[in-house]
Simulated assay, not measured.
Amino acid sequence: MFRFGEPLYLYLLIVLPVLAAFYFYSNYRRRKRLRLYGDPQLLKELMPDVSKYRPDVKFWLMLAALGMIIFMMARPQFGSKMETVKRQGIETVVALDISNSMLAEDVTPSRLDKSKKLISRLVEKFNNDKVAMIVFAGEAFTQLPITSDYISAKMFLESITPSLISTQGTDIAGAIDLAMKSFTPNEGVGRAIVLITDGENHEGGAIEAAQAAAKKGIRVFVLGVGSPDGSPIPVEGSNEFRRDKDGNVIVTRLNEQMCQEIAKAGGGIYVRVDNTNNAEKALNAEINKLAKADVETQVYTEFDEQFQVLAWLALLLLAAELMILNRKNPLFKNVNLFKQK
């Protein structure tokens, strides 16, 4: 496994394009000033020792060396030893509705974006727990298998959009069924399915699926996102709204009754998600009540530092930059590596 020991230093990489832009701008201004003195070809003949390409080569070598130094400061590491450890935790499968209706903006900034932020904060509070992510619309599929790698969970979360599933609809039953298959076979572990949806179930069977989960000791918590009053569905990349075949604007409404029935059948609670943090607090309180048991996790326990390679590369780049002169060396006047053909 590869990781950075000090990943915050990677933010310094933004300096590289800034320096490159400044260098290009400086070259442009320099060439513009030179043209004021006379014909560029004549100036070139009057200054035969001035190299057109060497300053560029020196700059790019220096910039590459700086990039190597920044990566070196971030401490790249490779995991060298993996062990199975036992920790006290629970298992949670998040099933997120990504149908087009989740683009509605009756919750700020949208139902889907609000849900993603809620999941992100939920994952941040996990400690020694396992999490999996399922996305669903007209069908359901596993976005992230159950894991204790929270960094990967948040990374996969960022990539979730309605375009991941071409089949539109809201198959809540299919999502719950898939979630039940996502848990590990460990005994005695508290298990929960966190279903996040606007409740517009088009396929049926959701209540029966939640009852089946409850019989297996899996609690189903339902977070209803949206407003019962409804909201139009924006068309991405435009100021238009989705319309039906008759040209009428489609209004999507939160089906709280459906959400409440699913939560009741699954032995969990229903919480409405609005523009406050109340839903997050209520969900965390319920999840903390779940029984924690020994959860086996494969983790890397030793990491080898890899900065030495980058240090040597930076040193070689700096040495090459120092050896290249800005002007042509008269000792090598017959050797011009930077001459245009």
Rank of each mutant, 00 (worst) to 15 (best):
L112M: 13
I218H: 11
K181I: 00
A209P: 13
V220R: 10
T142I: 12
L122C: 04
L178C: 04
A212D: 12
I119Q: 02
A175S: 12
S163T: 14
L195W: 07
N127T: 09
Q168K: 11
D149V: 12
L195Y: 05
S152L: 14
A140R: 04
R111Y: 07
S148L: 04
H202T: 15
T170G: 06
A153E: 08
E203S: 13
N128C: 05
T197A: 10
I165A: 07
E139W: 07
V222Q: 02
G188P: 08
I193Y: 04
G224K: 07
V194N: 00
S163N: 13
Q168C: 08
K181L: 08
L144D: 08
A132N: 03
T197E: 13
R121T: 15
N128P: 02
K117N: 15
I119M: 11
K216P: 01
I160P: 01
R111E: 11
F221W: 02
K130W: 05
K215F: 06
G169Q: 13
N201E: 13
E203Q: 14
A179D: 02
F221G: 09
Q143T: 11
L195T: 03
M180H: 02
S148A: 15
Y150M: 06
R121W: 09
L122V: 06
V189H: 04
M133I: 15
F141R: 05
G224E: 08
I160W: 01
F126G: 01
E124Q: 12
A209Y: 09
I165L: 15
I176E: 04
A153Y: 10
A210P: 02
E158D: 11
R111G: 11
I196E: 05
S166H: 10
R111D: 05
F221K: 01
G138N: 07
K130P: 13
S115L: 10
D171E: 09
F141E: 05
R219W: 00
E158N: 10
L118I: 12
I165V: 15
D149G: 11
S115N: 13
A173M: 12
I119H: 00
N201D: 15
Q143E: 11
V194A: 09
E200L: 08
S120W: 03
G224V: 03
G226D: 11
P185E: 13
E208G: 06
K130C: 12
G226L: 05
K154Q: 14
L157Y: 09
A137R: 05
D177K: 14
A179R: 03
D198L: 01
K125S: 15
I218C: 11
S115P: 10
G169R: 09
F221H: 04
F156M: 14
E187T: 14
S182N: 11
F136M: 01
L164T: 12
